[in-house]
């Protein structure tokens, strides 16, 4: 069912996808198209996107800025209705935000409730779902522990640094126990050192919980370092430019992984693809999917 399109890939890396393809994908995007209707006419943000995420996969979406990444993510999260095509999470078509999905937004300062303490922020979704107090406390404690914030539960989010605020958002997401975690350029606004720490944190959490992660970024290094797979998007109106398997060792660390020759190679390749995307060249197969 999942046919990973290998067309036009200069680096053919594997023929994998056999094991994963027999089960229901954790996340499936099929012929997704989004056209915004504005008073000034229609704007086509996403033209045609199709890709799948197998359960437990860590996939990075990377594309030039203005590639409609946020639009795509909102469609996947059920925040925006696509013009045509479908998004399915665990086989169910998304028409509203699915219960088994959590999102970490880029704007950490605006995604946490400033009138609630760190703990209340993490707890709120659970409380809203009617999880009982004991279970709630346990989940919140574990989540805060996992992101290294067990010591500040009573603080307000705005009293913390940017990196710590994003940790709170991550804690809230994992306490919610999602099957799929969407992350929308979560580290774009934090400093480099914090960013490295947070990247390792996300990898660790992903491994511990065995969840499926879709990580949107515009940072090529980050996408290669984090992902098991990198999907390169074209310029807007968006199509898939390339779907690339990252065959780096599962154990990654900032110093060694980033100095591997293979890392440099993959990075260079993604970079090249992004440059082509910016030059607005679209893979022929995807363009024919449209009726132009």
């Amino acid at each position: 069912m999942v046919l990973r399109l290998e067309r036009g890939r200069p680096l053919t890396i594997t023929q994998e996808g056999t094991a994963a393809s027999h089960q229901v994908p954790a996340l499936s995007v099929k012929d997704l198209k989004k056209v915004y209707q504005t008073p000034g006419g229609d704007v086509e943000a996403v033209r045609n996107l199709t890709f799948d995420l197998a359960p437990g996969e860590f996939v990075c979406l990377v594309g030039p800025s203005g590639a409609g990444k946020t639009t795509l993510l909102k469609c996947i999260a059920g925040l925006l209705a696509p013009t045509s095509g479908t998004v399915s999470v665990e086989g169910k078509v998304v028409t509203e935000p699915p219960k088994s999905l959590a999102v970490v937004f880029q704007e950490y300062g605006r995604s946490l409730f400033p009138w609630m303490s760190v703990r209340d922020n993490v707890e709120l979704p659970l409380k809203n779902q009617g999880v009982d107090k004991a279970k709630r406390d346990q989940l919140v404690d574990e989540a805060l522990e996992a992101v290294g914030l067990a010591h500040v539960p009573k603080s307000y989010p705005w009293q913390l640094s940017g990196g710590m605020q994003q940790r709170v958002a991550i804690a809230r997401a994992i306490a919610y126990q999602p099957q799929v975690l969407l992350m929308d350029e979560p580290f774009a606004a934090v400093d480099a050192q914090t960013r490295a720490d947070l990247e390792d944190l996300v990898r660790r959490v992903w491994k511990q919980l065995g969840i499926t992660v879709l990580f949107v970024t515009h940072d090529i290094d980050e996408s290669v370092y984090l992902g098991e797979r990198v999907i390169v998007l074209s310029n807007s109106p968006t199509v898939v430019q390339e779907d690339l398997k990252i065959d780096l060792p599962a154990e990654r660390d900032q110093l060694n992984t980033r100095s591997l020759p293979r890392f440099t190679e993959l990075r260079g390749h993604v970079y090249e693809q992004i440059q082509r995307a910016k030059a607005a060249s679209r893979p022929a197969a995807s363009v024919t999917a449209d009726n132009k």
Binding site: K74, L79, P97, L101, V103, F105, S111, L124, P125, R172
Partner: peptide
Amino acid sequence: LSDTCRVYR
């Protein structure tokens, strides 16, 4: 924040 609310239902 509004989107956050919707995501967490």
